Simulated assay, not measured.
Amino acid sequence: MTAQPAPRDDDRGGLRASHDDREAVVEQLRDAAAEGRIDLDELDERLERALTAKTYAELDALTADLPRPPSPADLPPLELSGGYYGASRGPGPWDVPGRVIARGGLAGVKLDFSRARCRFPEVTVEAYGESAGVVIVIPDGWVADTTAVKSGLGGLKDTTTPDRLPGTPLIRVVGSGGMAGVVVRHPNRWERRKLGNDPARA
């Protein structure tokens, strides 16, 4: 049996759209309304059509007159290295690229997505525990896929829940636990209290 070639982007119109495809368009439409590109009545109309769309062609028609959202290739990867002093990103607001590389080094890395702004349906995090480890914190409702992480001597600890809220990104973690390990979790009690009491981070 001869294998069929994969469809090109310009041939995909008749293909069936997934829930994630519809949610991505919904998010783009909401952003467009927040930027003043479409009014609220038009937003409601387009959202209804997006949620009932069955094909890529139907979804593409709803965003054809809007600027395209950035793709992971548009932003350089974020690289964090623990080195001798440690490194962190978050929990304050920051823009998430499509790829993050975290190397624990001798002092460790903490990557906190609690207040991060993410426009991508999926983000790849390369985590290498090395000597001090990497800690990745994701908000409730976000989901992590850690199946591709090699445990190494330090191992992998993933305590996140599998319940993904619509419109949230998938954090796909790859790499190795190294000597000190990789931890993926939701905010702990102290972190939740600190975020809740800090208006600048709300």
Rank of each mutant, 00 (worst) to 15 (best):
Y56E: 15
P91R: 05
R8G: 13
G104M: 08
P77D: 11
L80Y: 02
P93L: 13
R115I: 06
L59V: 02
G141N: 05
L29I: 02
I138T: 00
C118E: 00
T124R: 06
G14V: 03
R164K: 12
D9E: 04
S18W: 06
I171A: 03
T159E: 11
L170H: 03
G82W: 14
S18T: 15
L78K: 10
A202F: 12
E79G: 05
A61E: 04
D41M: 13
G82T: 12
R103I: 15
V183P: 00
A33G: 08
T160P: 01
S151W: 02
A53R: 03
G154M: 12
L165H: 05
R68W: 08
L15E: 07
W190C: 03
L78W: 11
L29K: 01
E58H: 03
W142Q: 12
D11V: 04
R68E: 13
A127K: 09
V174W: 03
E27Q: 10
T146Y: 09
V149D: 14
V135I: 01
D112E: 01
P69N: 15
N197F: 06
T160Q: 00
G90L: 08
G154K: 12
R119F: 02
P7L: 11
D198H: 02
R46K: 09
D39Y: 06
V149W: 13
S114Y: 09
L66D: 13
P166F: 05
T55I: 12
G177T: 07
E122I: 05
Y84Q: 06
G152T: 04
S71L: 10
Y85C: 06
A102F: 01
A132Y: 14
D31P: 04
G105D: 10
T147L: 14
L59W: 02
L78M: 14
K150Q: 08
M179Y: 13
T124P: 01
V173T: 14
A17T: 04
W190L: 09
L80W: 00
L51C: 04
E58P: 04
V173H: 14
N188T: 11
S18M: 07
M1W: 12
G178C: 05
T52H: 15
A32R: 10
G13S: 15
G177F: 04
L43D: 07
K194S: 13
L59C: 02
P121I: 01
L62W: 09
Y128I: 10
G196F: 10
L111P: 11
R12P: 14
G155H: 07
T63H: 08
V123H: 00
L80S: 00
D95F: 09
V134S: 07
E191N: 14
A50C: 10
A34P: 00
E58Y: 02
D21G: 00
D39Q: 07
Q4M: 03
L80D: 01
A202E: 12
G104Q: 09
R37I: 11
D112H: 02
R117D: 01
R16W: 07
L170V: 10
S18K: 06
D74R: 05
R89W: 08
R46S: 06
A50Y: 08
N197S: 10
L153W: 08
A107G: 11
P169I: 07
M1C: 09
T168H: 11
R201G: 13
L165D: 09
D20A: 15
Y84H: 05
T159N: 08
G98H: 03
H19W: 03
